[in-house]
Computed example of a mutant assay.
Amino acid sequence: MLTITQALYDRIVAHARADHPDEACGVIAGPAGSGRPERFVPMLNAARSPTFYEFDSTDLLALYREMDDRDEEPVVIYHSHTATEAYPSRTDVSYAGEPGAHYVLVSTADTDGGGPFQFRSFRIVDGEITEEDVRVVPSS
C-alpha cells in the first residue's frame, strides 16, 4: 500500500493538470529504507509529448546524486497519462527500473486537465504489474 500525504497527492495532481496535454513526470524521494515519500521533485518531460514521457538524463543523474548525498531513495515515481487510463503501458513497464518504488499514474484523459482524474499506484517488478491501494493521510 502507498501511504501519501494530502499535500504530496495534491502536488502530483496539480503537476499532471499543469502539463496537460503533455505527460507530466517526477519523483518523490524519501529517507533510504523508510518507504516514506517526503520530498516532491517535479521533473521536465524531455519528450514533451502527450503520449510518452522521458526524464532528461542530465536532470535524472543530478537527482540521483542529490538523493545519494541526502541518504534518500525514489519512493514514488509518477507520471500522467493524457489520453488513456491510469495503467502502466508496455513502455512504462520497460522503464520501471526501481523495484522498491511505487509507480503512480494520474490520468487526465477525459478532463482536458481540469476535471475528474484517476490516481492509481502500482508495483512493477521484473515486468510484473501489481496494483496497490493508495491511502491519503492529512499533511502535517
Rank of each mutant, 00 (worst) to 15 (best):
T3C: 00
A47N: 09
P21W: 10
L61I: 12
Y95H: 15
R120D: 09
Y87I: 12
L105N: 02
T130Y: 04
L63Y: 02
C25I: 08
P99T: 09
S140K: 03
A29I: 04
D126H: 12
A83E: 15
I28P: 00
G127Q: 05
A62H: 09
F40P: 01
A83C: 13
D126Y: 04
E98G: 00
D112R: 14
R123W: 07
A32F: 10
A62F: 05
P37W: 02
A16V: 03
A62M: 09
T3I: 13
D59C: 02
V125A: 13
L2F: 05
R135D: 05
M67V: 08
E38Q: 15
T51W: 09
T82I: 01
E72L: 06
T58K: 11
P88C: 13
I129G: 08
P50K: 00
D112L: 14
V27R: 00
Y64M: 12
G35N: 07
F119S: 08
A29Q: 03
L61F: 10
P138W: 06
G127E: 02
A109G: 05
F40R: 04
V134K: 05
P74S: 05
A109L: 10
E66A: 14
S34H: 08
E73M: 11
P99N: 10
L60A: 07
R120H: 15
T130W: 03
S89D: 13
D68E: 14
S139Q: 08
C25Y: 01
Y95S: 12
E85I: 13
R120S: 12
P99C: 12
R48K: 13
T84V: 13
D69L: 15
R39W: 14
G114R: 14
R65C: 09
G35I: 09
I28D: 01
S49F: 07
V41S: 00
I77S: 01
G30E: 00
L63Q: 05
D71H: 14
H102M: 06
V104W: 02
I4P: 00
L63S: 02
D56R: 03
G113N: 11
V93Y: 10
V104C: 04
A47K: 09
I28F: 03
E23I: 03
R70L: 15
V136D: 02
R90D: 15
N45K: 06
E23T: 07
F52R: 13
G127T: 06
V134D: 05
P74Y: 03
I77M: 11
H81P: 10
P99M: 12
G113F: 10
F117S: 08
E66M: 11
F122M: 10
V76P: 00
M67E: 06
I77V: 15
G100E: 11
V13W: 04
E131W: 01
V137F: 06
V104S: 04
E72W: 08
L61H: 13
R17N: 07
F119K: 08
H20D: 08
F40W: 14
F40G: 03
P74M: 04
F55M: 08
P88A: 12
V136H: 03
Y95L: 15
I129M: 11
Y9I: 00
L105H: 04
P31C: 01
V137E: 13
D68L: 09
A29F: 03
E72I: 04
D110K: 11
G97P: 03
E85V: 14
D19L: 10
T91L: 10
